[in-house]
C-alpha cells in the first residue's frame, strides 16, 4: 500500500467517523449526560476537520479523494449512554489503527500529520470510557 492509499484509507475512516459521531450526537441526551454530549460533539468536529485536511492533502498529492458512502451501519443499538460511549470508543480505536498504518506507510519527514492524529484518537478513546493501552493503534505489538 502506498502513502496515498494509506491516506485514502484514513479518509474513508474519517468519513465513517464523521457519520457515526453525527448519529451519536443526535442520540445523546445533553441534559442527562452533558459530558458525553460535549465529547461526542468535540469528536465530530475534530473528525470533520481531519477529513477536510486529508482531502486537501490528497488533492495536493494529485489524487482524487475517496468519497463517503451514503450511510454506515452502527455497531449496535445506541440507545443508552454506555452504548453511545462504546460506539464512539470503537470509532476512535479504529481510527487510531488506521492512522498508525498511515504512519508506517509514509516517508520520513511526512508522517507528522498521522502521528498527531494517532495521539489525538488515542486520547479521545479515554473520553469515551476507554482505558489506556500499551500500543494504541498497534495492539499486536503488546503480544510480542
Amino acid at each position: 500500500m502506498s502513502a496515498v492509499e494509506a491516506m485514502q484509507t484514513s479518509l474513508a475512516a474519517e468519513h465513517a467517523a464523521v457519520y457515526v459521531h453525527g448519529v451519536l450526537g443526535g442520540q445523546v441526551s445533553r441534559s442527562s449526560d452533558p459530558a458525553l454530549a460535549d465529547a461526542v460533539e468535540a469528536a465530530y468536529r475534530v473528525h470533520r476537520g481531519r477529513r477536510d485536511q486529508l482531502i486537501r492533502l490528497l488533492r495536493d498529492a494529485g489524487a482524487e479523494p475517496v468519497a463517503s458512502e451514503v450511510a454506515y451501519v452502527l455497531p449496535s443499538r445506541v440507545d443508552t449512554a454506555a452504548r453511545i460511549s462504546a460506539a464512539a470508543r470503537e470509532v476512535e480505536r479504529r481510527c487510531a489503527t488506521t492512522y498508525a498504518d498511515q504512519v508506517g506507510r509514509t516517508a520520513a519527514g511526512q508522517r507528522r500529520w498521522a502521528v498527531t492524529a494517532l495521539g489525538d484518537a488515542a486520547a479521545r478513546q479515554l473520553r469515551f470510557r476507554g482505558s489506556p493501552e500499551t500500543f494504541p493503534g498497534a495492539e499486536e505489538l503488546a503480544d510480542r
Binding site: T106, A122, A123, L141
Partner: peptide
C-alpha cells in the same frame, strides 16, 4: 515505516497515561 509506527504508538500511549 514499521519502526515509525511503533514509535508513534508509544508516543500515543504516553499521551494516554498523561490524560489519566
Amino acid at each position: 515505516g514499521t519502526f515509525a509506527r511503533a514509535l508513534a504508538s508509544m508516543s500515543a500511549a504516553v499521551g494516554q497515561q498523561l490524560s489519566v
